[in-house]
C-alpha cells in the first residue's frame, strides 16, 4: 500500500513540467525515506535525479519499496488537471498496475481522482559517485535561465568557465559570439539574489545549450540554482525543492575530438 499526500500539490506539477520534455518514461521509486526518480534522456547525454523526502509529505505511507513505471507525458496530462492550490495524493495498492492521483481543492468542495496505467520500464540505475567539484556556482535560477535562453539564439553550445574573476558563459555561432560574465555578488537585499562562487581550481567545460534550456524548465521550483563543475565530469545543475529535496540534472560535456 502506497499513499503520499502532498499539501503543496503544485510542487509535483512543477516537477513534471521540469522533466517531462527530457525523459519520456521513468520508474518512480518509493521507499520509507522518500519518493525518487533517476532517468536518462533518450540519447544518454543527460540524467535527471529527483528526490522528495518523506518528511515533506503531510501523510507518507509506503509499506514496501515499490517502483512505478510511468509515462511522464501521460502523468503530466493528469497532473495538469489539478489546480495549483490543490492537495495531491498518490495512491497505489500492492501489485496493482495502476496509480491513482487524487486532487482535493483547498476548501474540500471538489475531489477528483484520476487513475493512470503503470508500465514496465527496463531502465538501468547508475551509481553517481560523490565527487569534489572544482567550482560551485550558486546564482538566481531566473538569471541562469535568461543566460541560457539568450545564448541559444547565438550558438548551440556554451562554454562555462570559472576563474577568480567570476563565471563566464560563452557561445559562438554563424552570426557572431557572446560572452556573459557573472561576478560574485553577495551584497544583495535577499540571499536568493546572490551569486556565490566557490572555486578550488579554474575549470572550463563545453555543453550543449539545448539541454541547459531544458533544465531551466525547473526554474519555478527554486529561486536559486547551483552549478557544480569539475573537469572530466558531468556538470550538475541542481534546483533545491524547499524542505523536500531536489531535482538534479547531470549533463555530459562536449569533449575535444
Amino acid at each position: 500500500m502506497l499513499e503520499l499526500r502532498l499539501v503543496q500539490g503544485s510542487l509535483l506539477k512543477k516537477v513534471l513540467e521540469a522533466i517531462k520534455d527530457l525523459v519520456n518514461d521513468a520508474n518512480f521509486d518509493c521507499s520509507a525515506t522518500g519518493f525518487s526518480l533517476q532517468a536518462m534522456d533518450s540519447s544518454h547525454v543527460a540524467l535527471v535525479a529527483l528526490l522528495l523526502r518523506n518528511e515533506g509529505f503531510e501523510h507518507y505511507r509506503c509499506d514496501r519499496n515499490i517502483s512505478m513505471g510511468m509515462n511522464l507525458g501521460n502523468m503530466n496530462k493528469m497532473l495538469k488537471c489539478a489546480g495549483n492550490d490543490d492537495i495531491i495524493t498518490l495512491k497505489a495498492d500492492d501489485g496493482s498496475d495502476t496509480v491513482t492521483f487524487m486532487f482535493e481543492s483547498p476548501n474540500q468542495d471538489k475531489i477528483a481522482d484520476f487513475e493512470m496505467k503503470l508500465m514496465d520500464i527496463d531502465s538501468e540505475h547508475l551509481g553517481i559517485p560523490e565527487a569534489e567539484y572544482h567550482a560551485i556556482v550558486r546564482m538566481p535560477s531566473a538569471e541562469f535561465a535568461r543566460i541560457c535562453k539568450d545564448l541559444s539564439s547565438i550558438g548551440d553550445t556554451v562554454v562555462i568557465s570559472v576563474t577568480k574573476e567570476g563565471v563566464k558563459f560563452s557561445t559562438k555561432g554563424d552570426i557572431g559570439t557572446a560572452n556573459i560574465v557573472c561576478r560574485q555578488n553577495t551584497t544583495v537585499d535577499k540571499p536568493e539574489e546572490a551569486t556565490v562562487i566557490e572555486m578550488k581550481e579554474p575549470v572550463s567545460l563545453t555543453f550543449a545549450l539545448r539541454y541547459m534550456n531544458s533544465f531551466a524548465k525547473a526554474t519555478p521550483l527554486s529561486h536559486t540554482v547551483t552549478i557544480s563543475l569539475s573537469s572530466e565530469l558531468p556538470v550538475v545543475v541542481e534546483y533545491k525543492i524547499e524542505d523536500m529535496g531536489y531535482v538534479r540534472f547531470y549533463l555530459a560535456p562536449k569533449i575535444e575530438e
Binding site: 536518462m40 540519447s43 544518454h44 547525454v45 543527460a46 540524467l47 538501468e124 540505475h125 547508475l126 551509481g127 553517481i128 559517485p129 553550445t157 563545453t206 550543449a208 572530466e232 565530469l233 558531468p234 547531470y250 555530459a252 560535456p253 562536449k254 569533449i255 575535444e256 575530438e257
Partner: peptide, 14 residues
C-alpha cells in the same frame, strides 16, 4: 569540433 560524451562514460551501473 567537439564530440558529445555520454553519461555512461562517467557513471557506472549501480
Amino acid at each position: 569540433q567537439c564530440l558529445q560524451s555520454r553519461i555512461s562514460d562517467y557513471f557506472g551501473r549501480d
